[in-house]
Amino acid sequence: MLIQILLVLGFVLALWITWKRYRQDVITLIEALGWSVLCVGGGVISLLPKLTEYLAAIFGVGRGVDLILYAAVAIQFFLIFKLFVSHEKTERLLTKLVQNGALKDLSFRPEEQERWSGEILVNQDSSTRHTPSE
């Protein structure tokens, strides 16, 4: 069947890209293995669709296609959740950068030194500017 050939080619391509990304240090070994399991699993099920019937029977799901759908939804939920967590981490890094920028403003502004003499020491030579320890 043409659809089987296309699906298998798609999974092989995905597998190749996964390991290419691993070699490029874009993803970790665990991530590469996880994606590989999915790709190989998808390829095997594409070639042997009857296999899903046995798996569906084991899980107590009516049809093999239903099992694939349920699994796909669960996997997508997991991936979306991972994206949210990753987004949150990026947001926090961004905040840290913004904060560091704002705090530099506090340490090195000359008018602050005049206003709060003794609190912030700013050397006339900008290369040796420093703040007192807390």
């Binding site: 961004l94 913004v98 904060q99 705090l103 602050e112």
Partner: peptide, 17 residues
């Protein structure tokens, strides 16, 4: 003292700064 966030980061971030 006035500090300024280059972009809006939220009230919690401002309090931490």
């Amino acid at each position: 003292h006035v500090l300024r966030h280059a972009i809006n980061r939220g009230q919690g971030a401002s309090l931490r700064t």
